[in-house]
């Protein structure tokens, strides 16, 4: 079924192209979002990745799984963007973390929205400690449900290299999380002491 769709898209069938985009848009956008950390960059990168994948379908080996292939393209594009990214604060991108997105009448309450935002920020902080390759491996493992073999295909690494890199990344993030939590507890203790004195 998927193979037919890919072959049709290869021949320029617009219906098949639409189907491919609709099937893989969530996975590709999800990967780009986790790798780049904001919706604006992720949207651009995900669109570029899908366009590139469809325009280069002739290089895809029909019969192999499509998802690792398209995620590989997306991960490579995100890696390029991360390498080119300059450490500047953009006023245009200040709303990208969702801080200004909640409006009255939205599906979720402002508290839930705030909680989502904090969770996303926490995950972004954890992923920021990793290099682009490790970030893509972690993203594929946790949020794309790819097997070790598929991650190896998508990243061009050996199976043992994937396992080893994933383990080290998890260890580094766990350490970072522990420090974050210690910092948060420390802040809360200080706050309580201050309130007590006042």
């Amino acid at each position: 079924m998927e193979e037919d769709c890919i072959l049709a898209a290869l021949n320029g069938d617009q219906q098949a192209i639409t189907e491919l985009v609709q099937t893989y848009q969530r996975s590709v956008f999800g990967l780009c979002y986790r790798m780049l950390g904001n919706s604006t960059d992720a949207e651009e990168a995900a669109q570029d990745a899908l366009v590139k994948a469809i325009m280069n379908l002739q290089t895809f080996e029909v019969g192999r799984p499509f998802k690792p292939w398209v995620l590989r393209i997306a991960a490579n594009l995100c890696t390029d963007r991360l390498r080119r990214r300059k450490p500047v604060v953009s006023l245009d991108a200040m709303g990208d973390d969702g801080a200004w997105e909640w409006q009255a009448g939205a599906d979720i309450s402002p508290e839930a929205h705030m909680e989502h935002r904090e969770r996303n920020q926490q995950i972004r902080d954890l992923l920021d400690t990793l290099g682009p390759l490790d970030r893509s491996i972690v993203t594929m493992f946790y949020w794309q449900d790819l097997s070790y073999e598929e991650i190896a295909q998508a990243t061009d690494l050996t199976l043992s290299a994937v396992k080893s890199r994933l383990f080290r990344a998890r260890r580094a993030m766990a350490e970072n999380l522990r420090q974050q939590q210690e910092h948060t507890v420390g802040m809360e203790v200080k706050e309580v002491t201050y309130v007590g004195r006042a």
């Binding site: 639409t18 985009v21 848009q25 919706s39 669109q47 969770r119 996303n120 926490q122 954890l126 766990a174």
Partner: peptide, 26 residues
């Protein structure tokens, strides 16, 4: 704890008209 945090991460919402814009780009 890390596994808990990462597995509980909310799925990022797709931007509006993402598929249409992508198809137009294609």
């Amino acid at each position: 704890q890390l596994d808990l945090v990462l597995n509980a991460a909310p799925e990022p919402p797709l931007p509006v008209n993402f598929a249409q814009n992508t198809i137009a780009k294609v």
